[in-house]
């Protein structure tokens, strides 16, 4: 059996688990500024997408190619995908790729996927962990003209088809689709496995392939900020007033009792 040919799209983002206080917008540049201690990571949903591909590779065998788009991508971050079991890493890396929107990003990724040649399954996270748009996966599928199944919590490949449990309101549905197909993955699928030492050593020796816009047949005017359909007019942080009232007590239990009394006074209950 030849195995399943898979592509996983992974985005490098500022660590979304960083405490909310460190996120500061610079009004002059309309950009998010973050202190250096906030390290870049692979988007949390993209990690789940990587895990989905690895589980298929575990069972059915095959090849996983990871695509990541951006500029000055941290090698130790993107190489994590190789360390956990990815086979090849392609970086769409150029300053003209910066500041794109869902439209320009999906186009560049779709062109890169075409260039890689044959593929059976494409995996994306359900949404990025910075702009939270949730469009790129479905956009790639539209551009390539292939079916897409969003919000997968379980994926299994059988006989040239893929069986997906996809999250819907109050439950899930089991969907079957033939190759090639695109799947977006949600958090219930489960966390990305840890890299084994052997994987880390192997990844250290591998060099990613780097493609510029011209390598995927695009002009600089079609990618990144220049290729956007939506324009960012303003980035801001709504001012929050601390409104809370802390209820105290001699012991935690007494504080609990006092909370009930206070809520009754305030006519909330």
């Amino acid at each position: 059996m030849p195995g399943v040919n898979m592509i996983v799209c992974c985005k490098q983002v500022p660590d979304p688990e960083a405490p909310p206080v460190v996120f500061k917008v610079d009004p002059a540049t309309n950009k998010m500024t973050l202190p250096p201690e906030v390290k870049p990571v692979i988007g949390q949903y993209d990690e789940f997408a990587m895990e989905a591909a690895l589980r298929i590779k575990d069972k059915a065998g095959g090849k996983i190619t990871i695509l990541s788009l951006g500029n000055k991508l941290a090698r130790d971050v993107v190489k994590k995908t190789l360390a956990v079991g990815g086979d090849e890493l392609i970086l769409l890396e150029d300053e003209t790729f910066e500041e794109g929107d869902s439209w320009s990003t999906a186009h560049a990724l779709a062109m890169a996927i075409k260039k890689t040649g044959e593929y059976d399954l494409i995996f994306c996270g359900r949404q990025s962990s910075d702009w939270d748009a949730g469009q790129v996966g479905l956009g790639i599928a539209e551009i390539l003209g292939i079916p897409a199944v969003p919000l997968a919590r379980r994926v299994e490949a059988v006989d040239g088809k893929v069986r997906v449990e996809r999250v819907i309101p109050d439950g899930y549905e089991i969907v079957e689709v033939g190759f090639p197909a695109l799947i977006t993955v949600t958090s219930e699928l489960g966390s990305l496995r840890y890299a084994a030492l052997k994987g880390i050593m192997a990844a250290a020796k591998k060099q990613p392939i780097v493609w510029k816009p011209s390598d995927i047949g695009l002009e600089p005017s079609q990618v990144g900020a220049a290729g956007r359909r939506t324009k960012l007019a303003k980035l801001f942080q709504p001012v929050k007033e601390a409104k809370g009232e802390i209820i105290e007590g001699e012991t935690p239990a007494e504080a609990g009792t006092n909370l009930a009394i206070r809520l009754r006074e305030a006519k909330i209950i």
Binding site: T251, P252, A253, G256, L259
Partner: peptide
């Protein structure tokens, strides 16, 4: 920062007393 009312304490102790008083 988001809450109108808050109690600082282990929930295992706070919540049963809160529930009982409610």
């Amino acid at each position: 920062k988001e809450a109108n009312f808050g109690v600082v304490g282990r929930y295992e102790e706070v919540v049963p007393a809160f529930t009982k008083k409610l």
